[in-house]
């Protein structure tokens, strides 16, 4: 054993390192196979949680009823259909846009006519305390309401809530006020506000432009 410890033979050293890597790869392969299902379940759970917040009650699995559309600007958006009793009640449009630090991922609840139900930012890496105000919906727990149950529904966010009920077609000028548009933005987070506004309007425009195709594809998937 001491011989192995002091060896300077390159072949033995290389072989030792190779075997170490092989054992480690084997362990990881077995392990990642073991947790594959829990990871998929966790992802599905968080998607469903987000969907339930922005869509009306539905009885299908929207993440399995989805269609991908390539928008004019080159990015790919996903549209999921929420069905109740076999009828399309609402859609969730999913896309991402470059924010201040990396991509901002959004999930937008759409009524079939193209008006916006609610906007939810699912993933972002914006500056805490600046850009995060644009993106986060959170109930503030305090020491006074710590043991009270969480209120139902979507926590408010004054920036994201201003899209509710609007359609990109009606408000043609979907830009933040600084750029001459009609959307208010949050001081200190102009880049993030701009990115979210652009993303939401692109998602809605993409839906309006491809409405027939999207609804047709979703209906045929649900009909199966």
């Amino acid at each position: 054993m001491t011989k192995l410890k002091e060896t300077e033979n390159l072949w033995i050293l290389g072989l030792f390192l190779g075997i170490t890597g092989l054992i480690s790869a084997l362990v990881l392969a077995i392990f990642s196979d073991l947790v594959k299902e829990p990871i998929a379940a966790a992802e599905l759970r968080s998607t469903n949680q987000a969907l339930q917040q922005i869509l009306p009650p539905f009885d299908n699995q929207p993440s399995r009823t989805s269609v991908k559309i390539k928008a004019e600007n080159g990015s790919e958006y996903t549209f999921m259909g929420a069905f109740k009793d076999g009828r399309l009640v609402a859609l969730a449009a999913i896309g991402a846009n470059a924010g201040y630090a990396g991509l901002v991922h959004a999930m937008v609840g759409l009524n079939p006519d193209g008006s916006i139900r609610a906007v939810l930012i699912t993933r972002h890496n914006e500056t805490p305390g600046l850009g995060s105000y644009v993106c986060e919906r959170k109930f503030q727990k305090t020491i006074f309401n710590l043991f009270e149950p969480k209120p139902e529904g979507l926590p408010p966010n004054s920036f994201l809530d201003q899209f509710d009920g609007k359609t990109a077609r009606v408000a043609a000028n979907w830009k933040v006020r600084k750029d001459g548009g009609s959307m208010k933005y949050i001081t200190g987070a102009t880049v993030t506000s701009r990115a979210v506004t652009e993303l939401v309007s692109e998602l809605d425009r993409c839906y309006l432009a491809n409405k027939a195709e999207i609804i047709g594809a979703l209906n045929s998937q649900e009909g199966k």
Partner: peptide, 21 residues
Amino acid sequence: GIVPKKIRIPVYIVVIATFVT
């Protein structure tokens, strides 16, 4: 006890990386 001295750091890093993954 069996890791050759010359490559102990790479071997340790492989072990650590496995646990991190």
